[in-house]
């Protein structure tokens, strides 16, 4: 037994990049996909989805995340059309991510890049992140980028933050801190002006009754 506390699950906090085995290693096989699809969608849709996955896989896209996306749709009782659209969209994002990250990118990086693209990050940002990381994995900054945007940070601001950290070769802890700040911003629920600001906090309040208007 070697219990290892990974703490509260921010996306990047628990991420051990070095030596990480691809998550795809335990993804479902194609036969499982076909069986599960059979239980949920009509034959025509099933054939189209399987053919789509095969086609994308032949073009170089990893099969595992495509299978998983289809099974996610089955688990969520989506229609055949919805599943087909979702797989097609993911396939396109994975292709764009692979192009943006370069031929040497690991599958986990490509998947993380696809996540980032799917929420509005521009491909050139991925390219810059990959270039800024040198030989190190880009998984951590890509995951951080997705997390920041998902927490409401504008895409441009999130990209600037991550690119800045990447350019400075910041340690992993810096990404965690950036994410922590985003969490705080996200959870700061008071609307501006919620209590009239007036005097800045910290100024010594005057005393005595204020004059009548």
């Amino acid at each position: 037994m070697r219990p290892t506390s990974m703490g509260a699950l921010r996306l990047v906090l628990a991420l051990g990049v070095a030596g990480a085995r691809p998550a795809a290693a335990q993804q479902p096989a194609a036969s499982s996909l076909d069986t599960r699809l059979r239980s949920r969608v009509d034959d025509a849709s099933r054939s189209r989805i399987v053919a789509l996955v095969d086609s994308l896989a032949e073009s170089g896209v990893a099969r595992a995340p495509l299978n998983s996306k289809a099974l996610e749709g089955v688990g969520k009782r989506a229609s055949g059309t919805q599943i087909e659209s979702a797989v097609r969209r993911l396939g396109a994002d994975l292709q764009r991510a692979r192009t943006a990250l370069g031929a040497g990118a690991a599958e986990v990086e490509i998947e993380a890049g696809a996540d980032a693209l799917s929420i509005g990050v521009a491909p050139d940002v991925l390219t810059k992140i990959r270039a800024g990381r040198g030989n190190a994995s880009a998984l951590l900054p890509l995951a951080t980028l997705t997390d920041l945007v998902s927490r409401g940070i504008p895409v441009d601001e999130a990209a600037r933050t991550v690119l800045s950290l990447s350019a400075r070769h910041s340690p992993d802890a810096s990404y965690r801190e950036a994410q922590q700040r985003a969490v705080t911003r996200e959870r700061s629920p008071a609307a501006p002006g919620s209590v009239p600001p007036h005097a800045p906090a910290g100024l010594p309040a005057g005393k005595g009754r204020s004059p009548r208007p």
């Binding site: 990974m6 989506a78 799917s118 998902s150």
Partner: peptide, 26 residues
């Protein structure tokens, strides 16, 4: 309804809902 635990990175799931992204270390 299927949802995401508090604090977990949340993105749209392509099926009208949301999905959480978690990272697991080696």
């Amino acid at each position: 309804a299927w949802g995401v635990p508090s604090g977990v990175t949340t993105v749209r799931d392509d099926f009208g809902g949301t999905v959480g992204l978690i990272a697991v270390g080696p």
